[in-house]
């Protein structure tokens, strides 16, 4: 039984990768969690998970040069599938293989978190949103971020993907986040899972190559992510159904 979430935001800099790993670690208390760096154009997960020297990455799998299991690393209580950073790796990678990779991983985990690209500009960037059961929208309380979050939601719902909830991230004290979140919820399908304060701990964690929950488990931000994980009602579908849906999601022979 598995549910696949794409962690998405239209805009960069919202802390998507930090959020993906933090949610993953919090969920790992109750579920088998697999994190996939589905942002194949701008790999990030490896830097956050101490995997910058990983030999085999998702790029190799998407290029047909390695088996999926070779790119799976057990870190921080989760299975992590990082992407590589080389341009040639990106060029050789066939994004369509992602669906096979996710289908394969789905057989052996409860929750898949797809860290997706901060753009809706290309097919590869949107693919994780198509593949996922639901998205978690990471937002900052700014107009560009909310506006992009709305666009992401429209893409998701157009492709039959649900909205699991909103994560307001990098929230500063001078913002009336309750008022903003309350108003934003009128337009989004999911509820607010958490409001995560702007935090030096998140930057320090990234520099240390550790997920926030490992680096600063007692920080306010970490507590907020644990709260978000608690609010996320994981609705596991049968693994076969997920795998089958991935097969149907794309028309590979036309590409």
């Amino acid at each position: 039984m598995v549910e696949a979430f794409a962690v998405a935001s239209g805009k960069g800099g919202t802390g998507k990768t930090t959020s993906t790993l933090a949610l993953g670690m919090a969920l790992a208390d109750s579920y088998d969690v697999t994190i996939v760096d589905a942002d194949t154009g701008m790999a990030n997960v490896l830097f956050h998970a101490g995997l910058s020297d990983a030999e085999t990455t998702l790029h190799d799998v998407l290029a047909g040069k390695a088996e999926t299991r070779e790119a799976v690393y057990e870190r921080f209580g989760m299975d992590v599938v990082p992407c590589g950073t080389s341009l040639s790796g990106f060029r050789d990678a066939d994004p369509d293989r992602l669906r096979d990779v996710v289908a394969e991983l789905a057989a052996d985990t409860d929750v898949i978190l797809l860290d997706s690209a901060a753009t809706l500009g290309s097919r590869a960037a949107v693919l994780p949103i198509v593949l996922a059961d639901r998205i978690v929208v990471v937002l900052q309380p700014t107009i560009p971020s909310l506006s992009d979050g709305l666009k992401v939601q429209e893409y998701a719902t157009t492709y039959g993907t649900g909205v699991a909830g909103l994560l307001f991230n990098r929230v500063t004290d001078d913002e009336d986040i309750d008022a903003i979140a309350g108003k934003a919820e009128r337009y989004f399908e999911g509820e607010t899972l958490a409001t995560v304060p702007e935090s030096d701990a998140a930057r320090a964690a990234r520099r240390a190559g550790e997920p926030l929950l490992a680096h600063a488990p007692d920080s306010q931000a970490a507590a907020a992510y644990r709260g978000a994980a608690g609010r996320l009602d994981v609705q596991s579908g049968p693994s076969e159904a997920v795998a089958e849906r991935f097969q149907r999601a794309v028309v590979p022979d036309e590409l």
Binding site: P141, T142, S147, D174, E175, D176, A179, I180, K183, R186
Partner: peptide
């Protein structure tokens, strides 16, 4: 603060 602009947008 900027909040009023965000709220006005929403």
């Amino acid at each position: 603060t900027g909040d009023s602009a965000v709220e006005a947008f929403l």
